[in-house]
Each structure stands twice: as structure tokens, then as C-alpha cells.
Write a protein that binds this DNA or RNA. Structure first.
Length: 491
RNA sequence: GGGCCCGUAGCUCAGCCCGGUAGAGCAGGCGGCUCUUAACCGCAAGAUCAGGGGUUCGAAUCCCCUCGGGCCCGCCA
């Protein structure tokens, strides 16, 4: 129990009084309600001061503000679709009913009202209330009615207050949900099959990241939370599912900052008998489709309209090696020894361990010289082979793999390959990783290699950070803005 | 992990530089007002100034530590 403020004591006293009067402060239901939109639409057909008594309506929602003028009062009621003004008059409700209603009512209360659609004399769509029912008494007060909840920490820790007081926050999360629905619809229409693969695994693989570790009582062994969906999904290609995707939570034991969250939503798509060129076309189509949707969903948000423009094809393309050489002035990057790459990376401030794979130093150089310039949505293509243990070598460019990464505003949005399906090469690359990077290396997954021994069709795959995708589309500056309940330190 | 910034009433903010023991608005209480919409007018009330320690006759204010948060950097392919 938290400490009670004087204001909360006051409201508790109201609850007690209601109970002694035999009135329930938390009743069970309010049947037959319509949303504010329906009443607003009806009221708009009226002229100021006019009512529509032949169409009585019941509305329910949270009281945002109350304005009392003696024997008349106004209250703003907010529901899922917006808000509607309640008009209360003593000559409609009776003096006793009017007094009781106002004495009981506080901002933040959930109420139901029955009355007549009306347009106020000042032209505000309203319900002229016959009867008002308290549906849930708010003991704690809502955030400040005009400024809302400003404190960033409180907005994250108590998202319900942020949502309650900010229509923009509600619109943003509604948009997120609708974009994910659209994303599924798009992939379903393209004959992809949504699947669910394990989150709890003996060993998390498919990426280089520190996993969360927990314990299975049944197995009497530690298990890990997945850091990627890749390896189970590729097993499904071996099994013949051909086109699969998974949209779900992935976990990495890392910091939370403006583009990272320890738990994040990842989309991975695997597509047999297609290569990374096909995947690029699929992704471009998907992005363009989502951009169209966000344009409709958030027409009043400058950030979202910018996002919609930025996610409309065509997109920029840069070659990993050419661009790195151009930006850094370093020539012959592909022929540098691991030692040379390491010293170049050191020069630009990288502090990764000496034992890291050569590809890590290349990544560091790319991050330093190129990524800050990738402001528009850009496809970076054909990475050096050393960077990527799960991609197939390029069919015509020695030392390269068939891969593209997508960047936007300096952060990585996603990563795709023509997938490696040669079991012997896969085994060799896993072993190289083991030799080089210690705990952060790609885990050796013997069963995955065995699966490849049975033959995985040629395929392409992609992983996309969905929270980042949503950030880009809606113009959010931080991943926390698109996560309902981002991880915060308990207090 | 490093740097900078923030934490004052339930909420939104002022006061801090330059030390004299906390001020407003919203919300809540009481009173007034029959078309307002950040309604308005009057009265009264509401604060361990994030927590701890120090300097000082005196600390919201200056110093140190701790906690929580934000931004940047590092780390996180």
C-alpha cells in the first residue's frame, strides 16, 4: 500500500459515503453503450442549442474535466474513439439528482451517462444527460489536465498514466499494433506461414550476443532465452515449410538505450528457392506498404509523415567495401591482414578484444566511417566474408558474401543473406567463431549442422528489428517511445 | 564503465547562479455562478524541497556520497 495523500483520503471518503447510501462505487457493467464517435456524428447533424430526443444514447468513459456553472455543468468524457461533452442541468436531472451527481464526480472517474445527443449553444457535440452512473471511482487523481504527464520517468514507469492523459501516446501505440497487423497481412498474402519457435533453449544461437540465462527445474539444467530466431526457422526449411516467418520477442542481455532494448520484437523471414535479391524486393514492397499505412494512420504527425516518405522506395544502396574505402581513404581493405585491420580499428577508437574475428574489426571500421552517414534508408550490400558466419559466399565476388543490411538514421534496421546451406562450410565457420571470440562467439549448434546434412534448399532470410522499424515509420526518437513497458530499474 | 544535466505539493512549474528556513497554477475542500470547453470569482488547506552526510549562526540553494531518471560517449555484429 502506498502512502495516501489528503486528496486520496477525500476520495476514499466519497467511496465510503456511496456504500453507506447503498450505491455501488464499482458496479459490474453498463449495457448498451455506444462510443463517442456515434454521438458526435449524430450531434453534428443538429444546429447549436438543438437536441435529438428521438435518439437517446448511452456513453461511457473517463471524466477528463468538469466545469460547473451553478445549476448547469459540463464534463468531458473520453473513450476509445475520442471525447464527448456531457451537459448536466438541474432542470433535467432534478435538483437532488444534479447535486448528488456533482458531489460524487471527480476528474478521473469512469462513468456512464444516458441522455440525448445535443449540440451545445457554442457548437460542442454533447450528451444532455438524463442519468449519470458511476462505473469506477478513481481514488488517485489523473495527471494535470492541460500539461498531462511530463516527467519522462513517470511516463515509462506508469504508462497507464501517460496513455490516460496523452491522445498522442494512445495513437502511437494503436498505430504500432495496426502496423504489425499489416505486416502479418502482407506476409500472409505472399504465402508465408507464421510459426512460433522456442524462446527457451539449451543454448541460444544464431547471433553473437550475451543471452539471459535461467534454469529449468524439469531438466535440472540452465536454459537460455533466444537471441535470434534464425536456427529453428532454417530447420523448418529443411523440414519443407519453404516460406516461414516469426514475429516475436527476442532477448539480449544488454543495455537499454535509444535504439536497444533487452527484449525486443524481431521479425525473421525465411524463403526457400529465393536469394537475397528476391528478399530485397520483398522487403522494399513491405516497407512501401507500411509507409502507405502510416501516412493514413498518423496524418497529423510530422514525424510519421517524414517516416512515411523515408520508407517509400526506391532506397539508397552502397557497397560495404567500396563505401568503407571511399569514406576512410583506406585502399585494399579485403587484402588486409587481421593484424592490420585490428590496428586500423584501434586507431578509430575500437576497444573490442584483440582475439576478435577479423570481421569484427571490419564492422568497427564500417561503424566509424560509414554508419553515421547513413541517414536515409540505405541498403548496404555484399559484406566481406569474414563478418558473417551464416551467409553464403558471393556467387561472383571473391571474399564477399551475399548479404544486405538496412540502416536508417544511423541505426541498423535489419540484416539479410542468401543463406549458407553447405553443412561442411557451416561447420567450418562455426569452428572459426569458436576459435576467435570467446563467450560472444556464435554458439556451435551441432544439431543445426546435422539438419543441413539432410539438405536445406537454397534460401534467403532476413531479420528485422521491428521496434526500430516502427520508430522509423512513426518518427520516434527512442525505442522506449514505441515500447509500452520498457525495462526500468525497480525502485 | 566515462562525461554532462535533472529530481521542489497527487500533477505542471517558479525559487537555486548571489544561503535568511518554500511560491503559483491544475486537481482536492468550502462558498458563488444555467452554454462552458486550460471556464470563471472568493476563502481555507495541501511540501520528510529524492535520501544521507558536511560547511555555516542559518542550506531547497554551497560541497561530498547514495538512489532514480534523461542525453552523449564506450560496450552491445
Amino acid at each position: 500500500m502506498t502512502d495516501e495523500t489528503p486528496l486520496e483520503r477525500e476520495r476514499r471518503a466519497k467511496v465510503e459515503r456511496l456504500r453507506t447510501e447503498g450505491r455501488e462505487p464499482y458496479p459490474w457493467s453498463f449495457v448498451g453503450r455506444v462510443t463517442s464517435d456515434a454521438v458526435r456524428a449524430r450531434a453534428r447533424t443538429l444546429s447549436p442549442g438543438e437536441e435529438a430526443p428521438e435518439h437517446p444514447a448511452r456513453v461511457a468513459g473517463r471524466v477528463k474535466a468538469i466545469r460547473v456553472h451553478g445549476r448547469t455543468a459540463f464534463a468531458d468524457l473520453e473513450d476509445r474513439d475520442g471525447s464527448i461533452q456531457l451537459l448536466l442541468r438541474s432542470d433535467t436531472m432534478g435538483d437532488a439528482g444534479f447535486d448528488t451527481a456533482l458531489r460524487d464526480l471527480d476528474p478521473g472517474d469512469i462513468v456512464g451517462a444516458e441522455g440525448t445527443p445535443a449540440l451545445s449553444k457554442r457548437g460542442e457535440p454533447s450528451v444532455h444527460v438524463r442519468s449519470l452512473a458511476l462505473l469506477a471511482k478513481a481514488i488517485a487523481p489523473p495527471p494535470e489536465k492541460y500539461h498531462g504527464l511530463q516527467d519522462v520517468e513517470e511516463r515509462l514507469r506508469r504508462r497507464y498514466l501517460d496513455l490516460m492523459s496523452s491522445p498522442e501516446t494512445r495513437a502511437l501505440f494503436r498505430t504500432r499494433t495496426l502496423l504489425l497487423r499489416e505486416l502479418r497481412r502482407y506476409l500472409d498474402a505472399a504465402q508465408f506461414f507464421e510459426v512460433e519457435t522456442p524462446i527457451l533453449l539449451p543454448i541460444a544461437g544464431g547471433a553473437a550476443a550475451e543471452p539471459f540465462v535461467t534454469h529449468s527445474r524439469y531438466l535440472d539444467a540452465d536454459v537460455q532465452l533466444r537471441i535470434a530466431q534464425e536456427l529453428p526457422l532454417k530447420r523448418l526449411l529443411v523440414g519443407g515449410l519453404e516460406r516461414v516467418y516469426e514475429l516475436g520477442r527476442t532477448f539480449r542481455n544488454e543495455d537499454l538505450d535509444s535504439v536497444h532494448s533487452p527484449e525486443f520484437t524481431e521479425l525473421e523471414i525465411y524463403w526457400a528457392y529465393a536469394d537475397y535479391h528476391d528478399m530485397r524486393r520483398l522487403i522494399e514492397g513491405l516497407f512501401g506498404h507500411l509507409a502507405e499505412r502510416v501516412r493514413e494512420l498518423l496524418p497529423d504527425s510530422a514525424g510519421a509523415q517524414q517516416g512515411a516518405r523515408d520508407f517509400t522506395p526506391p532506397f539508397a544502396t552502397v557497397d560495404f567495401v567500396d563505401e568503407l574505402e571511399r569514406r576512410s581513404g583506406i585502399d585494399g581493405i579485403l587484402s588486409k591482414s587481421p593484424e592490420e585491420l585490428r590496428s586500423l580499428a584501434r586507431k578509430v577508437g575500437s576497444t573490442v578484444p584483440d582475439s576478435s574475428a577479423p570481421g569484427v574489426f571490419l564492422d568497427k571500421l564500417f561503424e566509424h566511417y560509414v554508419e553515421p552517414h547513413l541517414d536515409r534508408l540505405t541498403f548496404v550490400v555484399d559484406h566481406p566474408a569474414a563478418t558473417t558466419p551464416l551467409a553464403k559466399r558471393h556467387r561472383s565476388r571473391p571474399g564477399r558474401v551475399e548479404r544486405f543490411e538496412m540502416f536508417y538514421r544511423g541505426f541498423e534496421l535489419g540484416n539479410a543473406y542468401t543463406e549458407l546451406n553447405d553443412p561442411d562450410e557451416q561447420e567450418r565457420r562455426f569452428r572459426e567463431q569458436l576459435g576467435s571470440r570467446g563467450e560472444e562467439a556464435y554458439a556451435y549448434d551441432a544439431d543445426f549442422v546435422r539438419a543441413l546434412l539432410h539438405g536445406m534448399p537454397p534460401a534467403t532470410g532476413v531479420g528485422i528489428g521491428v521496434d526500430r522499424l516502427v520508430m522509423g515509420l512513426v518518427g520516434a526518437a527512442s525505442i522506449k517511445d514505441v515500447l509500452l513497458f520498457p525495462l526500468v530499474r525497480p525502485r
